[in-house]
Design a protein around this nucleic acid. Structure first.
Lengths: 205, 205, 205, 205
DNA sequence: TATGAATGAGTCTTCATTCAT
DNA sequence: GATGAATGAAGACTCATTCAT
């Protein structure tokens, strides 16, 4: 009993080792710029070893991407978002959680959204599912807000706006585009929160 | 005088030839997916020749990125944006032009914003400058709107929101994230325009 | 006594399992094209297990080559060749059996004769022995034919011719060289038989 | 004028260098056992250089195989075969030339006939053409012999026999199968010639 | 007996880049 | 100005094999 467990644990540890290194590399160098060789070298294993844990480079990449999505979702839970009864407050919290998570984990953001390499259909589906959780949750919340007349407007258009503005703010932040506008990082962080609040204030009935 | 000029003109023509081909390739295959050999083959010159016009692959890439930025800016002009006197209308037109351009040229969008390969400091500055035009123009417009009390709020926060929402909408569009929400491309295009209009309606005094 | 025997029997069974799968693979993909990993996967054992039964890939290969030779010899028996009293008829039957076997098992032919990978001396000897059976049998038959004045000529030269023509016909068949002469497979099969008959008719006294 | 020629000559020399080394390696180690890396090392060039002269490993292999075929054909000419008027004598000379060539160049023989690796259709056609010359020439000669009533029998069957016996003899020789029959190399060479003569004597009217 | 984990060596191939001509 | 030749470095990936357990 103990043996199987230990083996499983060791395997998981190894996978973690690989992911940790690969995560950094994918971020710094991009998908194409990252080589399994280099990953192997950094964890001080042979390249072949990685293939014992991941079918190929893509499989590794997608595992990491998936982990990012899971971390994001988990950050919603940590912020207690799902348990907020008032849908408008839930929406507000969601937005802030999204901004916060991406500001704290800009690399994750890049990994989740800035990779457009060819993916097999399977991978695409997989990716969508991860996405999906967030998407569905946002939809439910928006719909509930409208039903309760807490915000007004077309459901789809509102979702688009909401997603657009939060995502867009994160993109600008992660890309450090604020520098082009002569704004500091700390300022930008403050501005982002305010922007979201302003936006909410305006759509509120 | 004539000779130098002619030489310069010829050089420029060659550069154009290279860029034209490279532009398509970078757009279609991305930075890593594009090889100088292939570019050379298509223009029917040897790979070595390209080095007479560009220091390296990156230099070529940035010339192309620049081209994208110029195309974007030029699309503003084509839409007659700069000549619109009413700043609010100008803002509205700007937004629509931005959305339209990126919907029509999603690969340009990728090239301009999604390429994060290591760049020398020089390149970064260069890139900022291209950006800068748009940034400055937006700032002026927003400031003018506020001064004329056509919109209200903090200048910086508003710019952040505006830029965020337009850029964010484009990102979602280019990534086809709408698919995850079960929305078709055509729907998405319509929604984006409406989202921008709604947003404008709300910030308007 | 019982235990040792059972163990031996089990070992033999395992070896058979391996050979059965490996046989197909070597036949289909050749020596280089066959990987121990794949063999292991197919018998649902780990690659390492194979090494408990075979020193290395070559050892396994030679066991299979041996199997081919045994199959060939056994095909003689199935055709009732050894029991034919008349040596000339025996020779005729032998030839037809050889042609038939190789036409039906072209991959076996390849395995037996077309694999020239570096072999240890031991392996070479081993191989010769397999060969040997057929060689000796042919010699005896030819000698007997000559003694009984059923064919005439030098014993060695005749063996060379006989072996040459039968083997040569098979080689051409297996290589599909008949295609280069615009001949179909079915035609070729018929021609081969006739060629052998014609040859026999001519050496007959 | 001189420059182009010199370049061409140099290119040809390089190609020859590659072929010479590759020829030996393909023979000794087979197609799969031969690596471009090793070839490159032996000619003291980088692996990439080979790709300047050959598209890939297969292209190199087929060039060598082709050269073997050409050498074989050229050996017919050296032996004055084509100019022999009497078709039966021409046939005899052809057979001897074939035996002689393959006895002297057993490696060529292996390369020409003992490689069954996957080939693209193009390559197959190419190979057939090389083959074809010999095939057509044999056919014409046999037909002429029959027409002039110098040999008798079915044209196709005779060709099959002729090709079979000469090819088979060579195969046995190249494989050193004579060793299994306790025959020395020199003996075998003598036997082969005699076997061919005997065969001819028997088919002669 | 059986194997999971690991690897060293090796595969073909592509690329950006340089340099003598 | 243009290029043919050359290459060093690297890429993903596979394999036969070993060994501790």
């Amino acid at each position: 009993m103990g043996i199987t467990e230990r083996k499983e644990r060791e395997k998981e540890e190894m996978r973690k080792k690989i992911i940790d290194v690969a995560f950094d590399m994918f971020l710094e160098e991009g998908f194409e710029g990252t080589s399994l060789r280099e990953i192997a070298k950094r964890i001080e294993y042979s390249p072949a070893t990685i293939y014992l844990y991941y079918k190929d480079k893509e499989a590794l990449f997608f595992d990491i991407q998936k982990k990012c999505f899971l971390k994001l979702i988990s950050s919603y839970k940590d912020a207690g978002v799902p348990s907020i009864k008032n849908p408008f407050e839930r929406l507000r919290a969601m937005g802030h959680a999204y901004l916060k998570f991406n500001m704290k984990n800009p690399q994750c953001f890049n990994l989740m959204f800035l990779h457009n390499s060819p993916m097999s259909e399977f991978k695409k589906t997989d990716r969508m599912e991860n996405h999906g959780n967030g998407v569905g949750f946002l939809k439910d919340t928006v719909v509930e807000c409208i039903e309760k007349k807490m915000i007004k407007g077309d459901q789809l258009e509102l979702r688009m706006e909401i997603w657009g503005i939060t995502h867009g703010l994160c993109t600008l932040y992660v890309n450090k585009s604020y520098e082009a506008a002569g704004i500091t990082k700390t300022q930008a962080e403050e501005l982002m929160k305010n922007a979201w609040e302003n936006f909410l204030a305006r759509i509120k009935t």
